[in-house]
């Protein structure tokens, strides 16, 4: 920001804020809660969910806070009978076309629609009616879409277009039957980055590998760094019973919460049955299980033997671009200090 400030009022209280901010930003900066469903960090304002409607003195209509820039002297009200009624109306309409299957829904516990329904105590819907059928594209191994739960906030469509630059999905059809889908309803064929899944506020998009693996409150989350390429994306591993059941990323990191298909869906190898479980020693061309002591003793003995017979430089070590700094440090220290050679390298060049 260029340091310029403006003064306006929210709910009768005078507030100073920076230029070119949306009303929603200003309101949230000041700790005032406004419910939203279509608002999403880094995406252009969309104004579809109509939950962030506020009153501005001098404007007869309610205005969406997410899409309106706050200007000097604006008198904003975030709470009033009209606003409250409108919000309840929206939520009630959404629920009138929602499957009410929170007990099976992967999003339960982190679903803002569930929270709003709970908060408003909306058990009875005054205008029940037709509900959209489930149309599921089930052909890829990553992402499942259940249109019956979709609230058409457009976050998936927008993240796919605005951030990922792919545009694999869009709005299809009109009216009540409007839905999100691929052009000509072809099977989803994209980069499978899962940005759409991460941006879906409800249970319309789920990561298939995580289905029925655990509820959010049953997991422990651990922040770490992606094991794949050199971007260094921050991952949050969600762990239940010593298993990674899903991977997300915090928006407040260098990768802004965005991941690629490997980062988001590619941690399963950790639990692969091929994982080596114990040291192996080859005898007559066959690997035999051994103890650590046996294995390390053998290695130490052989290294010493070669060193003594052929000199330090007859030994060499290849370190790993997939191991930690500590491990790489220790590896070269081992090669240099223990084996006594500078024959150490790794696959930086490959």
């Amino acid at each position: 920001m260029d340091g310029k400030k403006i003064v306006l009022s929210i709910n009768g209280k005078e507030i100073t804020c920076g230029l070119n901010k949306t009303i929603l930003d200003v309101v949230r900066e000041n700790g005032i809660q406004i419910p939203t469903l279509c608002d999403c960090k880094n995406l252009a304002p969309f104004g579809a969910c109509r939950l962030c409607l506020v009153e501005i003195e001098g404007i007869p209509k309610l205005i969406t806070a997410c899409s309106t820039i706050a200007v000097k002297g604006m008198k904003i009200r975030t709470e009033s009978e009209r606003i409250d009624k409108s919000r309840r109306f929206i939520v009630e309409l959404l629920l009138s076309d929602h499957p009410f299957d929170c007990m099976f829904c992967e999003q339960a516990g982190t679903c803002p629609l569930q929270d709003l329904a709970y908060e408003y105590g909306m058990k009875n819907i005054r205008f029940p009616g037709e509900k959209r059928a489930t149309i599921t594209d089930d052909t890829n191994p990553f992402i499942e879409r259940d249109n019956s739960k979709c609230i058409l906030c457009g976050r998936c469509v927008r993240v796919c277009d605005e951030i990922q630059g792919v545009g694999a999905i869009g709005f299809i059809d009109r009216g009540f039957q409007t839905r999100i889908g691929t052009p000509f309803d072809r099977n989803l064929d994209c980069e499978f980055c899962g940005q759409c899944v991460a941006s879906c506020p409800v249970g319309a998009l789920t990561a298939k590998p995580s289905k029925q693996k655990g509820r959010i409150w049953q997991t422990r989350s651990v922040k770490t760094i992606c094991p794949y390429c050199g971007c260094g994306c921050n991952l949050t591993l969600h762990v239940r019973d010593n298993k990674i059941i899903s991977v997300t990323s915090d928006p407040d990191t260098l990768n802004e919460g965005y991941l690629c298909s490997k980062g988001r869906f590619g941690c399963d190898y950790v639990h692969h049955p091929d994982r080596l479980q114990y040291p192996l020693i080859k005898k007559d061309g066959q690997f035999i299980r051994s103890s650590w002591e046996q294995a390390l003793t053998l290695v130490a003995m052989k290294f010493k033997e070669i060193k003594e017979q052929h000199g330090n430089d007859s030994l060499a070590g290849l370190s790993s671009a997939k191991c930690t700094n500590e491990e790489n440090y220790l590896f070269q220290k081992f090669i240099r200090a223990v084996l006594g050679t500078n024959n150490v390298d790794h696959c930086a060049r490959l």
């Binding site: 104004g47 579809a48 969910c49 929206i90 009138s96 076309d97 009109r174 009216g175 009540f176």
Partner: peptide, 23 residues
């Protein structure tokens, strides 16, 4: 007509007019 032509973006038009039509 509205239901056929609604772009489906906002909830009141998409679902609200549908409920009115149903009634």
């Amino acid at each position: 007509f509205i239901q056929i032509e609604s772009c489906g973006k906002c909830i009141p038009c998409r679902i609200g007019t549908k409920r009115m039509l149903e009634i």
